[in-house]
């Protein structure tokens, strides 16, 4: 059975279509990533999946229940972590955990066991009495995850859980997710960070409300056709300007300290030599393996 399935899902805000006929199949006990830039519709999709948003067209089934007519059953069985930190800032770590345990009717005995377990992986135990509002960004996210897990849900839905979190905490957060997966928890996670896409077992690439790619990260990268070149120069802006006059602008991407150039059929060595001749600042031009970000940027076109 799938943890969650969406069929031809469309969501409108007034007349704007936030999601356009999205199809999704989330297998059990996997980390499923919803990848896309801001405004792609990630939050809308996550909220629809956890029954918070009424959708206009299509259908959603979560853990076998219909998201419109059986939302109560779904809500009792999933854990949800909204994009914004949504715990009670003026309650302590312990009080937040206890409150959510009681909302889900977890018995005190079970709660204590589960809490110890959550403390163990989140390492929040020393901060049990601290107010949630006084935690660091990374710890806040771990607490939010712990609260979403206090009733041992089968599926957790995490909306950009690593947004605005420092790199070290991000790595730690992903380790926790992989651990949870091993315990059999299904995870749907959204992120705008392409480098996090490879941490997922399966992903959907979301752009302007539509799914533009689906599969394992490997499959998506392998589906890439053509060649990719990395060009470096002392003055990158000048090089960018120069290349714009030579190739299609859509094939060029500024990538930190290099420029990525897409070519459908590959570049001939003579052409590269000509460029080096004409633009003396061009230090190197090498063919590279595309990363997720290259693939995504290409797919967006």
């Amino acid at each position: 059975m799938n943890a969650a399935v969406a069929r031809e899902l469309s969501v409108f805000y007034g007349s704007t279509e936030a999601l356009k006929s999205v199809n999704l199949e989330v297998p059990e006990a996997l980390v499923y990533g919803i990848i896309g830039p801001d405004g792609a519709g990630k939050t809308t999709l996550m909220r629809s999946l956890c029954t918070l948003l009424p959708y206009s067209e299509g259908s959603i089934r979560v853990l076998g229940y219909d998201a419109l007519s059986e939302s109560a059953q779904i809500r009792a069985r999933i854990g949800y972590m909204p994009q914004r930190f949504s715990l009670y800032q003026d309650l302590s770590v312990e009080q937040n955990l206890r409150f959510f345990a009681r909302l889900f009717r977890v018995s005190r005995k079970e709660m204590l066991i589960q809490r110890e377990k959550l403390y163990e992986f989140s390492r929040l135990k020393p901060f049990a009495k601290r107010l949630a509002g006084n935690l660091s960004g990374g710890m806040k996210q771990k607490l939010a995850l712990s609260c979403a897990l206090i009733h041992t849900p089968k599926l957790i839905i995490l909306d950009e859980p690593t947004f605005g979190v420092d790199p070290v905490s991000r790595v730690e957060f992903w380790q926790i997710l992989h651990e949870l997966k091993r315990e059999g928890v299904s995870i749907i996670v959204s992120t705008p960070y392409m480098d996090e896409a490879v941490q997922c077992d399966q992903i959907s690439l979301l752009h302007k409300g539509s799914v533009i790619g689906q599969g394992t990260p490997d499959e998506i990268i392998k589906a890439w056709q053509g060649s990719l070149y990395s060009l470096k120069a002392g003055n990158l802006q000048e090089l960018y300007k120069y290349l714009q006059s030579k190739v299609d602008k859509a094939d060029l991407q500024l990538f930190g300290s290099e420029i990525h150039l897409y070519s459908k059929d590959g570049l001939r060595q003579e052409l590269i030599d000509t460029w080096k001749h004409e633009f003396s600042g061009l230090a190197s031009c090498e063919e590279i393996q595309p990363g997720m970000e290259d693939v995504f940027l290409k797919m967006m076109q």
Binding site: L52, A72, R75, S86, L87, L103
Partner: peptide, 13 residues
């Protein structure tokens, strides 16, 4: 306003 309602709504309450 604080968004905490969104969190507690995804529960059987």
């Amino acid at each position: 306003e604080m968004g905490t309602m969104e969190q507690i709504l995804v529960s059987p309450v």
